[in-house]
């Protein structure tokens, strides 16, 4: 069964790019364009991992991260951002990883693989 990844980003081209590339890696990808009713979406879809944009027009990704963590403390979350200033906010330490947005998804793919790994040796 492929692992399910939820991409949360308000930029359509980013959702498209991530969906295409991650689907090629064998993941099942679903998307959301905002943080609106995101917890309900997570409850319904039960993703294995969330890729979360920090700066969306109507939502602060770090607040969403906090909401996710309060309810699903074992759900891996990777933060995506154009700038690394978000690290000044202590909430950011609740994320599994962060990646700087880029059209080269090598780093993101590597972080996703690591976060989905159980962390245990066989």
């Amino acid at each position: 069964m492929p692992k399910k990844i939820l991409i949360v980003d308000d930029e359509e081209h980013i959702r498209f790019l991530y969906s295409e590339e991650l689907a090629e890696e064998g993941y099942q990808v679903i998307t959301a364009e905002s943080g609106f009713r995101l917890l309900e979406r997570i409850e319904e879809e039960k993703p294995d991992l969330v890729v979360l944009d920090i700066k969306m027009v109507d939502f602060n990704g770090l607040d969403i991260l906090q909401d996710i963590r309060n309810k699903y403390y074992d759900l891996p979350v990777i933060l995506c951002t154009a700038y690394d200033t978000f690290k000044e906010d202590m909430k950011s330490i609740a994320a599994d990883h962060y990646v700087i947005k880029s059209f080269d998804l090598t780093e993101l793919k590597s972080r996703i693989a690591q976060a989905l790994d159980s962390g245990l040796t066989e």
Binding site: Q66, Y73, M90, K91, A94, A95, G119, L120
Partner: peptide, 15 residues
């Protein structure tokens, strides 16, 4: 601990 390869974050409370 010998079985653990990498770390995961811990929940935050009280922001």
């Amino acid at each position: 601990w010998k079985r653990i390869r990498h770390s995961r974050p811990t929940s935050i409370y009280g922001f």
